[in-house]
Amino acid sequence: MDPFSDVTSDDEAVWLEDPKTLQDSEWSRLSSNFTNAGYREGITAGKESALQQGFDEGFAEVGAPLGREVGILRGMALALISFLTASPDQASQQDLIQELRDISSELSRIRLSDIAPRDLEAERHAREHDIEGNTNGDEMDLELTEELKEKKDMEKLEDLMMQLNPEPASTSSAKRPTMDDVRRLKERLAALSVRLQLEPRWS
């Protein structure tokens, strides 16, 4: 076989070059093999070292307080609905009941992703990955956990269903609620309690 044919593989090419290049390429192959192996182990260990603290932080600072806020409003709205619908002069309070049903259904549309503050570190880091391109793609299977991914998919599906369902073509279903909407719903609920002369502890 002709060693100088143009089908020389990379390996063959290496042998054809001078020893210095050979040494360099061997060196860099060695270095990147071991560096990559270390990197892979390190990334897993580093991730595990920070997971718990991140969880606690997200739970205490964002998830629990926001969930409680929305939950309390829903509970209050439902208590009022059940109170009014059971009262004897129900007919005269039809407008109140309708208002409560509106509030209630708007509250039930709210998702954590609508009202959670941005995770700036996550955004910054995602941008860094964008800049890097996909250079270390195979190490980057660290994005979302299965669980969160599934929830996202579910929400997308819900959105899709909303769009397909032509019936409640209200403008409010078109865009996602925000924290301002939560505040407004709370005010509407408070105004309603005043009309009913109720003074719940807003805790």
Binding site: G54, T145, E147
Partner: peptide, 9 residues
Amino acid sequence: HGSIEGRAL
């Protein structure tokens, strides 16, 4: 990544 993912969870 751990802290980002932990926070999300």
